[in-house]
Each structure stands twice: as C-alpha cells, then as structure tokens.
Write a protein that binds this DNA or RNA. Structure first.
Lengths: 126, 126
DNA sequence: CGGAATCCCAGAAGATACTG
DNA sequence: CAGTATCTTCTGGGATTCCG
C-alpha cells in the first residue's frame, strides 16, 4: 500500500467522518447506543444499504462498536467507543451550529424546519 | 420550493460544510484570505472545476466573501466573513482531531504522513 | 490568472428481492 | 430484524479546451 499523505489535519478527520451520512449517524450515537432500526427511523432518507455501509466504515475506522445479540429476531446495537467519544464535543458543536444556522435561514425567509433539537439541552454547558 | 426539513441540526451544518472539499477549503481560509492559486497549491488534488464550484457554494451559503481585484492578470481573494468565522472554532477542532488521528494511525503501523500541522500552535489555547 | 463550458465515466446511491 | 445481493440509475467530479 502506498503512503497516505495528508496536506492538513482535517483531511484525516474527513477520512473518518466524511461521506454523506457518517456525521449524522455519529451525532445520533452521541446520545447513546442505537439499534439499526432506530437509526433508520432517526434518518428516514437513508437506505438500508447505505446505513449498513457507513456503519461498517465507521467501525473499521475504529470510532464505533458493533454489538450483536445472538437472538431471534436479531438485535444489533451500535455505539461510540472510547476513541469515538473523542469526537463527541466536535459532533455536539456541529449540531449546535446547525441549529443556529436553521434559525438564521428562517430569518432569511427560507422555508425550513428542524424536527429534533438534540443539542439544546447542552447549550449552557458550552 | 418545498419546505426543507432537517431531522437533526447537523444536517443543516452539512449542507454548508458538506461536500468533498468544503471543510478543507474553510480550514485553509481560517488562517487568512487566500487567492485561488494559493488554495490550489494548498489542496493539490483538487481540480480547478471543483475548487471554483465549492467556493461558489460556500459563497452562496454566506460563509465566505469573494473579492475581485480589477486588474490584469486577474486577482481574486476568498476569505471567511463574519458568519463564516462562527465556524472557526469547529474547523480548528476538526484539524486538531485529524492531527491526533494521524498520530494514532502511525502508532497502528499505518503508513501515513501529515505535511502541514496548521493547528499545532493553537493546541495550548484549547 | 481565474474561471466558464464540454464531454465523459467510475462509482455513489436507489429500488427491489431474498435469507438466517 | 438486520443484512446481503443484484440491477439500475444518475451524478460527482476529472480532463480538456477556450475566454476576458
């Protein structure tokens, strides 16, 4: 394998949390472990295929754990592991900025809506 | 236009800084205004077309300014504007995490290299 | 020098059906 | 319920060329 060269730190970060859905998935996992179906419900637009794929990649990057319960029907839970937790503050800030941005868009007269304000409760802490 | 619905704040954030190169571009602008050619040199793998496209989108999102100097040869400078500055802390943390991640990958025995440690000087501040 | 316009394709991503 | 497999669609983005 050829040497992987990053020109700036953030390029390495994007290799982990880049991609269409990874950051969204991680943000949801920030509030605790989730089953596949829960994630699917929290991210309605994602396809089964994409969800699985992105979860596998996050697992291989070493930021989430996959726990399989041997039972019928199957049950699989995903969660941020220790290393993934090191992203937690960033994820929270990304959520917060987005919430502010939605307010900004509304003031601009854009027709937007935000269903879930996950980070509101943490506003004071930052 | 249909109402844009976000399920979680970070989805709105990704609409601004998502895409293959936007975060990288913003990270470079974090250290000051840059000319098109400078950005091209700082991000060697990006194509002319993508650079222009992503810059236009960032401009339309309202986070960067584009300043055209009327001269021959042309000179155009891009910079974070006030609203874009509100992303600066996040961008810095994304860079920092990536720098740590490169160290992590090295310890894992991966063959990686990081050319530019832009955020090192800010480590103590955070 | 900065960038617009064209052509073109690998690979991203959707839909559907199937399995343990 | 979670995941795989297949097939298809489509678009992100590379390469190239031309313009003010």
């Amino acid at each position: 394998m050829v040497k992987k060269i990053y020109n700036i730190g953030v390029e390495a970060t994007l290799e982990v949390i880049g991609g269409k859905w990874k950051t969204v998935i991680l943000c949801h996992l920030r509030t605790g472990a989730k089953r596949t179906g829960e994630l699917k419900r929290l991210i309605p637009e994602i396809s089964q295929k994409m969800l699985t794929k992105q979860l596998r990649e996050l697992e291989q990057s070493g930021v989430i754990d996959r726990k399989v319960y041997n039972q019928i029907p199957p049950k699989v839970e995903y969660s941020l592991n220790n290393y993934g937790e090191s992203l937690s503050l960033i994820l929270n800030k990304l959520c917060l900025w987005g919430e502010h941005h939605v307010d900004y868009l509304e003031k601009e007269g854009k027709d937007v809506a935000l269903l879930r304000r996950e980070s509101s409760k943490m506003k004071e802490r930052d």
